[in-house]
Amino acid sequence: MSDSDVKEPEATTEDGDAKGDARDNESPAPKGDAPGEGAKADAAKADAAKDSAKSDAPPKSGPYRPTPGKPLIEMSNVTKTFHKGKEPLTVLDGLTLTIAEGAFEALMGPSGSGKSTLLNLIAGLDRPTSGTARVAGHNLEKMSDGELAKFRAQNIGFIFQAYNLLPVLTAVENVELPLLLTKVPSGERRKRAETALRVVGLSDRMGHYPRQLSGGQEQRVAIARAIVNDPTILVCDEPTGDLDRKSADDILALLTKLNQDFKKTILMVTHDPSAAERATTTRHLNKGRLD
């Protein structure tokens, strides 16, 4: 399979707006390097949101266009039940949650409380058993696997506890991965990946393989990978769980910067109270319900 075989996810609203091109110009690269450009992009987003708001029907697939005043994540009476053999196990029990765009929220709770399950639902990795999950204008519970994959590619940036970089790729190649799902040309992909790595302070480690990096550096590469496609939401599952205090602080500072400077909405699952302190809001989950 060649690179050209990778199709860009369809990026049209129901009224037929093509969004792919606009999105291609909204990578973190120009924003980071030239704040003025970022402001223009934000203005463009706002204009686009006005257009989008004219239609009540949400886009079935495609990148999110921010709508000021509207919540970004709306979970309503969400239940998630797993089956262990014949025994049903309810992990989320009628949960209702709203998160506004631009928020930096921490989700805390004991093991088995449903934090990761909730994160998976918001990120479109799973569907609720019942209830509605509306994220970035998409009703996730109604979407097919393929539509969810496109949704994730266009709207979600993942940051995992174990970094989850591909060991056979260098840092810059790992960061390029999400761009393979777009029509961005090869040379441009590389430029954007390099810019994303510069944003996370790893311009001198681009050609290094994950095994040649420290844990903190690996997580920075993972963050660069998460932001290279300019997603609406950054979903972080214990991003500092495997790091020492110093590296953890650096990563949290980076996330704060992404939230404040790049207006990324961040949802972070953590056990670490000091990590949660960086968030603007902290929610506690217990036995599948929010306290």
Binding site: M1, D5, V6, P9, A123, L125, D145, G146, A149, K150, R152, A153, Q154, F158, F160, N164, L166, L177, P178, L180, L181, R225
Partner: peptide
Amino acid sequence: REYGVLRAIGFSPWHIRSF
């Protein structure tokens, strides 16, 4: 796990099969 990561960031099952 790596295939899971690729799927998470938006690669389709078809991509994974192609790999």
